[in-house]
């Protein structure tokens, strides 16, 4: 039997990073993610890793760029205000195709906001943040086990595609505890990184950069990036599909709202209302094809988020043109409780 330990989400993530072979952490404190640097400050040096409490989030992300350029698995973690400061660096990492992990344990915004759970940073993580035509891989854990497993996955995907992976979790997922298996599902394989800058050692000179000034160079670089992003979209979609076969309405939710939706679905089914769940685990690549297929068949879709409707746009773009899409959102630390979601299900079915 696999041994499980009652573990906090943030700790599972930090331990997952160590087991994934991450040996460099750079970060600046902010609630609700402080357990991550606290844990790594203690345990990263034990495996020969380097923990640097950076002077700012801007410094943190650029240290990730440096460590990533040398081929090492490196990460930073923060929350909304800190992640905003990192956006320039994220754009540079994307432009120079340097892998790294950025963890955002979301707190309320805008501004300094508050420390309650929220999902207000979806658009920033999935659609933008920094300048330029780029994407990040975005993973959205909804359990403590996924905080561990998806952190390992995030490093693998980052290396495979030479992209930044973002773990986007709300503060509830970071702070609550569940039994968790703290061993990897499969052995960790460190890929070769011939592009890494570790000293020339006889090979031809090479460079990691995002500045391309020659005629047509920047456009070609952008098109190459897009080709890579299309490949990610094609190969790496992850989602949970539950109770969809007989559903008369489909909920689309990620992170904590997906957990709440599961309770609402249990309540609904006890009352004979057939509700299903599509839970995106990857937000980029978004499970657009799954949304399209299920919405075409089921017809009614309810999007539940802890914001005022950010993933909603991706669902609308992906959904079948005839699908009726409704939305229930609670921003700024509001929790969409199960009985409230159930009321929204009833409303959508009227």
């Amino acid at each position: 039997m696999t041994v499980k330990k009652l573990t906090k989400g943030n700790i599972a993530l930090a331990e997952g990073a160590i087991q994934a072979g991450c040996r460099f952490y750079f970060g600046y404190p902010i609630t609700p993610q402080n357990d991550i640097p606290e844990y790594l400050a203690k345990h990263l040096p034990e495996v020969g890793g380097t923990f640097i409490p950076a002077e700012s989030e801007i410094a943190s992300i650029n240290m990730v760029l440096g460590a990533g350029a040398s081929g090492e698995r490196a990460m930073t973690s923060s929350s909304g205000p800190g992640i905003s400061l990192m956006q320039e660096g994220l754009s540079y990492l994307a432009g120079s195709e340097i892998p790294g992990l950025v963890v955002n344990i979301m707190r309320c915004g805008p501004g300094l906001g508050g420390i309650a759970p929220t999902q207000g940073d979806y658009t920033q993580a999935v659609h933008g943040g920094g300048h330029g035509d780029y994407r990040n891989i975005v993973l959205a854990p909804a359990s403590v086990q996924e905080m561990f497993d998806l952190t390992i996955k995030a490093f693998e995907l980052a290396d495979r595609y030479r992209m930044v992976s973002i773990i986007l979790a709300d503060a509830m997922v970071g702070q609550f505890q569940e039994p968790c298996r703290l061993t990897p599902e499969k052995p960790i394989v460190m890929p070769d990184k011939p592009w890494a800058l570790r000293g020339r050692q006889g090979r031809n000179p090479q460079l990691l950069k995002s500045l391309y000034l020659g005629p047509g160079e920047q456009e070609a670089h952008n098109l190459d990036l897009q080709k890579k992003y299309a490949e990610v979209q094609k190969n790496e979609v992850l989602c949970e599909e539950k109770f969809l076969d007989d559903a008369e309405i489909m909920i689309v939710a990620f992170g904590t709202p997906s957990r709440i939706a599961k309770t609402a679905i249990r309540m609904a089914r006890e009352q004979g209302i057939r509700v299903g769940l599509l839970r995106p685990i990857t937000l980029f690549p978004f499970p657009s094809e799954q949304v399209r297929a299920h919405s075409a068949r089921i017809g009614k879709v309810l999007v539940v988020e802890m914001n005022t409707g950010q993933m909603l746009y991706d669902v609308k773009i992906a959904a079948h043109k005839d699908a009726a899409i409704s939305f229930y959102g609670r921003p700024g630390g509001g929790i969409p409780f199960p009985n409230e979601v159930l009321a929204e299900i009833r409303k959508a079915l009227e």
Binding site: M172, F176, E178, T256, R259, I260, A261, K262, T263, A264, I265, R266, I335, F337, P338, N339
Partner: peptide, 16 residues
């Protein structure tokens, strides 16, 4: 908040 069940737990937080 503690939830204990013999089935998959949805919401870790409750208002009922």
């Amino acid at each position: 908040y503690v939830t204990i069940a013999d089935q998959e737990i949805g919401s870790p937080i409750s208002n009922t």
